[in-house]
């Protein structure tokens, strides 16, 4: 049999080079998408800020966008003060976090420290199901069951509750983000070295004392990261607020009143009849930019914290 000739000098493989190039292009796509988001929003928002000043947008207390009646009337087409929307978003997200942070964290603690392997195997996927249910389903449930229930219970105590209260939307949103907090916190708690657990128990601490005074403090950075990610998800959540929170731009801190949010307004502004390049339509992109920037900052901080934490115990 003839020996195969082997040359030790490199053979050119143009096809492989091309292939690698294509693959690298695909990975750069992520950057293009981010860039696309930023550019498209900045571009449209820029046009908006030609009509409405940035200060009016960021600090104005009244939100009532209207389509211009005449073409030359653009500047005066309603008022675009985003403060009521920002306040509404924060109100609903805060309610959601008030529900999700303790319940998510305590569930994570129970699952990682107390539950037997069997209970864990059942409960964990069930909890994660909560995150897998589409938000439109939560929105429907919030509007159909939770809001009327809160209105009715409020009535029992003589409280005036709006039919689209911030409380209903926030509560349901809170349940939706529980698994975000619980599964990430669960990971974080499991990463706390068991030597710390043994040290505390060896000193005669009860399990609860060990958890409260040693495990949770050691895991605080990771837990904070999970809270931030959940808050970011709450701020960006759209369908629940569109369906259950309504469009009334009230500036209030009362959870029993109706408020609106940044995301709900974006949907309202861009559905139905729209004329392009009107202040009303463009304001949606200004709101989008605000939303994107806020969630981006929250996400980056959260990921930094979580990564730092992971390195600490690696």
């Amino acid at each position: 049999m003839a020996q195969r000739e082997i040359s030790l000098t490199g053979r050119k493989r143009p096809l492989e080079t091309l292939l690698k190039l294509t693959l690298n292009l695909a990975s750069v796509l992520a950057i293009f998408v981010t860039l696309g988001i930023v550019l498209s929003m900045v571009f449209e928002a820029w046009k908006f800020f030609q009509m409405v000043s940035v200060t009016e947008f960021l600090f104005g207390l009244e939100w009532s966008p209207q389509t211009a009646i005449r073409a030359d009337q653009v500047g005066s087409s309603g008022s675009f003060g985003a403060v009521p929307l920002i306040a509404g978003t924060l109100l609903i997200s805060s309610i959601a976090m008030v529900v999700a942070a303790p319940i998510g964290l305590i569930s994570a603690i129970y699952l990682s420290e107390y539950a037997s392997a069997r209970v864990r195997a059942w409960v964990k996927p069930l909890l994660e199901m909560l995150a897998g249910i589409p938000s439109v389903v939560y929105g429907f449930f919030a509007a159909l069951v939770v809001a009327p229930f809160i209105r009715m219970s409020g009535g029992q105590f003589g409280l005036e509750v709006a039919s689209e209260s911030a409380l209903a939307a926030g509560l349901v949103m809170g349940v939706m983000i529980i698994p975000l907090i619980s599964s990430l916190s669960d990971d974080v708690l499991n990463a706390v070295p068991s030597s710390l657990r043994e040290a505390s128990l060896g000193l005669g601490a009860t399990q609860a004392e060990t958890i409260k005074k040693v495990i949770v403090p050691a895991a605080i950075p990771g837990i904070a990261g999970s809270f931030l990610l959940a808050a970011s998800a709450a701020i960006g959540e759209t369908m629940i607020v569109v369906m259950a929170a309504g469009l009334a731009a009230n500036l209030t801190a009362n959870p029993l009143e109706a408020v609106t949010t940044v995301t709900a307004q974006i949907v309202a502004l861009l559905t139905g009849d729209q004329e392009f390049d009107s202040a009303k339509t463009l304001s949606a992109f200004a709101l989008g930019l605000l939303l994107f920037a806020t969630t981006l900052i929250l996400n980056i901080i959260a990921m930094r914290i979580v990564n730092k934490y992971r390195e600490q115990y690696d």
Binding site: T34, G36, I37, S40, A233, L291
Partner: peptide
């Protein structure tokens, strides 16, 4: 970092991107 961030961007922002571009 970009990919991880995109995974956490609110979905409505992708809608805006789709509309604008």
């Amino acid at each position: 970092v970009n990919i991880n961030n995109l995974a956490a961007v609110p979905s409505i922002v992708f809608g805006l991107l789709g509309m604008a571009i």
